[in-house]
Write a protein that binds this DNA or RNA. Structure first.
Lengths: 149, 149
DNA sequence: CTTCATGTAACTTAATTAGTTACGATATGC
DNA sequence: GCATATCGTAACTAATTAAGTTACATGAAG
């Protein structure tokens, strides 16, 4: 799992889970999908459990399940549950007292807040069900879902 | 200069330059504004020179000047010249051949492209002049522009 | 009571970026 | 022409962050 691919890796995992409703998948199985190891998976999606997007159970036959229907899980929630910042730039002061910096930060912060709201709004309109539907289209066309390599 | 603060640090520098039109500032002077060293400044704003946002000259009395009026320099150009990605998440394939991943990346990429366009459009409406105006408002109110600490 | 699974802490490794040193190229002023 | 000031850039070092790994405790199922 590369850097900065937590969102797409998590979506990858969730679509696989959505494709096997009712069947718990283990961290180990999920890890193979995104070519990493079970602990990284657990750590990555721990926040999704807290948000009710997935549930986990221990012991024999345990593993991970979607917490609700794919139609009711938006990318905005997923992204938020991962604790990802949509915008990468910092607006932390580094020169307290400098009015130039204060002006820069004020403008940049306004932009950041508006942009984040905008992006979250766009992401809230895309659901896991949209992803599975897109997957199904590809699957019906090509007929393979191999995990070669 | 902290991580992820290249945009705000660069804006900080540019506003200082805008506040002294016609007077070249050295990398060393610019570096003190953002608490770093001259080489980091040169490296950071090298792209702005290529984009015509600033000009640099060597030798005695040399340094950095704005390449055009603050009204004609938008944050979109600055951000682009810094080579920053507005959105931090990756959409690079990691499991070639997996249709689930392909579906995820397709949807995410559509979103990314639309979002980037949207953000760039918003940033293109904010100019350096807006920042200097904001600074002047603060300055007129408080009357200090010290760089204490 | 053994096995399988998650939860999590602690550590190691890898990647990225800022910071630093060094020096060549170039422009100015004496 | 020579001393000085400045950028341009390569090469290295240090700091930070995130992924990967190991280890083990906890809990559920048969």
């Amino acid at each position: 799992m590369k850097r900065n691919s937590r969102l797409s890796s998590t979506l990858h995992i969730l679509v696989h889970m959505a494709e096997e409703p009712g069947h718990a998948l283990t961290s180990e199985q999920l890890a193979t999908f995104i070519h990493t190891n079970p602990v990284v998976v657990r750590r990555t999606i721990a926040g999704l459990r807290d948000a009710g997007i997935v549930t986990s159970s221990r012991g024999h036959g345990g593993g991970w399940l979607l917490g609700r229907a794919p139609e009711a899980i938006s990318l905005a929630e997923i992204s938020a549950a991962l604790g990802e910042t949509l915008l990468p730039f910092s607006t932390e002061p580094e020169s307290p007292g400098c009015l130039v910096e204060q002006a820069v930060i004020a403008v940049l912060d306004d932009f950041r807040i508006a942009a984040e709201r905008l992006l979250a709004e766009k992401l809230s309109r895309i659901t896991l069900a949209d992803l599975t539907a897109d997957f199904r289209r590809r699957y019906d066309l090509i007929g393979v879902s191999s995990h070669a390599i």
